[in-house]
Simulated scan of single mutants.
Amino acid sequence: MLDTTTWPGDVDNYVDWLVWLVGELLTDPKHFFRSFTVKELGRLMTARPDALPVRAHEMGIYKRYFDLIATGRKTTDIRVNDSSRRKIKKGSLIRFRCQGDDVLTRVTRYPSFREMFDHESVASVNPLATRDEQLANIRQTYPPEREALGVVAIGIELVDPPRQA
């Protein structure tokens, strides 16, 4: 049994360490075929890093939009309300990834485009395009059957500067 009294922080921190441990265990294919000894687990547990990445939803994004988010110029992202987006709540963290870079953001949800544009300018979605150009781009990305699922507008608050892999 693992000694939880030496773990820093709360339950979320403990879960993060366990997720890290499982990742470490799965990096060596031989471990699929045998059990770990207490000594091996102890070695792994003492080798854990001091800090783990912040737990966040992960999304890919086109480079041109990633750069706008990373510089703080794009403060709203629009996504189809598919099953993975329904899990994202106000205040959740999203890590946008593009070509080995990532940036951590916090979510503000809007129930509709109308309400989003009551709080956010059209330029917040893409400061380099007009409203008509943005709608044309969105329709190229999301075909009608995906758009029929509904739309989520995500307000972006930059939490961490972008990092390169």
Rank of each mutant, 00 (worst) to 15 (best):
Asn137Glu: 15
Val151Lys: 04
Tyr65Pro: 03
Arg114Leu: 08
Val80Leu: 01
Asp102Ser: 14
Ser84Val: 10
Val107Pro: 04
Asp77Trp: 02
Gln134Trp: 11
Glu58Val: 13
Arg106His: 07
Val151Ala: 12
Arg139Thr: 05
Phe113Gln: 11
Ser84Cys: 11
Arg131Asn: 11
Asp82Lys: 02
Glu145Asn: 10
Tyr110Ala: 05
Asp77Asn: 10
Gly91Tyr: 08
Gln134Tyr: 08
Ala136Leu: 07
Pro127Asp: 14
Thr108Trp: 00
Asn81Pro: 06
Leu104Gln: 07
Pro143Thr: 12
Thr105Ala: 06
Tyr65Phe: 15
Gly72Ile: 01
Leu128Asn: 04
Arg73Val: 06
Ala70Ser: 09
Arg146Thr: 02
Pro144Ser: 10
Ala148Gln: 14
Asp102Glu: 09
His57Trp: 08
Ser84Phe: 14
Asp82Met: 09
Asp77Pro: 05
Ser121Asn: 07
Val103Cys: 03
Arg109Leu: 15
Ala148Asn: 12
Tyr62Asp: 13
Thr108Tyr: 00
Pro143Ser: 12
Asp118Asn: 04
Val125Trp: 15
Ala129Arg: 10
Tyr62Ala: 12
Ser112Tyr: 12
Ala70Pro: 01
Asp67Glu: 04
Phe96Leu: 02
Arg97Met: 12
Val103Thr: 07
Arg95Tyr: 03
Thr76Ile: 14
Ala123Thr: 04
Asp102Thr: 08
Arg114Lys: 14
Phe113Ser: 01
Glu58Lys: 13
Arg109Val: 03
Arg139Tyr: 13
Ser92Asn: 15
Pro143Tyr: 13
Lys89Ile: 00
Glu147His: 05
Ala129Gly: 01
Arg109His: 06
Arg146Cys: 06
Gln140Lys: 06
Glu133Ser: 00
Asp67Met: 02
Thr130Tyr: 14
Ile94Lys: 01
Thr105Val: 10
Phe96Gln: 02
Val103His: 07
Asn81Leu: 15
Lys74Cys: 05
Thr71Ala: 11
Phe96Val: 03
Tyr62Phe: 12
Leu68Gln: 12
Arg106Pro: 03
Arg109Ile: 06
Thr108Pro: 00
Thr141Tyr: 13
Phe96Cys: 01
Ala148Trp: 07
Asp77Tyr: 05
Ser121Ala: 12
Asp82Thr: 10
Ser112Thr: 15
Phe117Gln: 09
Arg109Thr: 08
Thr105Lys: 03
Val107Arg: 02
Pro144Asp: 11
Asp118Met: 01
Gln134Pro: 00
Tyr142Gln: 06
Arg64Pro: 00
Ser121His: 07
Ala70Asn: 02
Gln99Lys: 09
Gln140His: 03
Tyr142Cys: 07
Asp118Gln: 04
Glu147Ile: 15
Gly150Met: 07
Val107Gln: 04
Pro143Ile: 10
Lys63Cys: 00
Phe96Thr: 02
Pro111Leu: 08
Ser84Pro: 00
Arg86Ile: 05
Leu68Arg: 03
Arg85Tyr: 04
Lys90Asp: 15
Ser124Val: 00
Arg79Leu: 14
Asp102Pro: 02
Ala123Ile: 01
Tyr142Val: 08
Ile138Asn: 03
Asp67Arg: 01
Arg146Asn: 11
Thr75Ser: 14
Glu133Met: 01
Ser112Ile: 07
Ile78Leu: 10
Asn137Leu: 12
Val151Gln: 08
Val80Trp: 05
Ser121Met: 03
Phe117Leu: 15
Leu93Phe: 15
Thr130Lys: 12
Lys90Thr: 14
Ala148Val: 05
Leu135Asp: 15
Arg114Val: 10
Gly91Leu: 06
Arg85His: 09
Lys90Glu: 15
Gln134Asn: 05
Glu147Tyr: 10
Arg85Ile: 12
Glu133Lys: 00
Thr130Met: 09
Arg106Phe: 08
